[in-house]
Amino acid sequence: MNALLSSLRVTVATMAICVGVYTTAVWAVGQAVVPDTAEGSLITRADGTVVGSRQIAQAFTQPQYVWPRPSAVDYNGAGAGGSNKSPASTDLTDRAAKTVAAYGATADNPLPAELAAASGGGLDPHITERAALYQVPRIAEARKIPAAQVEQAIKGAAFNPGGVFTSDRLVNVLELNIALDEGSAR
């Protein structure tokens, strides 16, 4: 009986401090120091509508946009997930064949693997700089602008996520596409 009573007392104490006080403290720091990312890194237009989150991939299928990695959940921001297929699965081969066709990749101009492989959460906001440059001819043609201008936008947006520990420079697909839209409008 004493053990039950003590269990209840420890439950109340830990619940109050670890759930109540701790969560409030972390929330308060987030709202005070980094309110933007604490709210989910949302990108808002001048009229207040939300375009998306910098951290969350969204679907791009039109030719004038840089396309993100495939998503096993069709870029569902409220139900993320991966394909969970064996890397040797024929389902993956079939899916990748469709991606290859969409990009028009050939043996002479093979598709970078990151554009064929779906990410774990299906919401990876990045592709490599290499994979973005691969898409330049299509984008330049659709936007009727010089390829060099698209390349410049990509190289300007590319960053190295881990300094000396990573070699692949990445670009954020949504931010890059917003920049391309703004550049074309100018």
């Binding site: 998306g52 989150s53 969204q58 679907a59 569902n76 921001g77 409220a78």
Partner: peptide, 12 residues
């Protein structure tokens, strides 16, 4: 969100 291509995306 309303994406650049005009689709609704709910972001949890």
């Amino acid at each position: 969100a309303t994406t650049l291509e005009g689709v609704q995306q709910t972001i949890a």
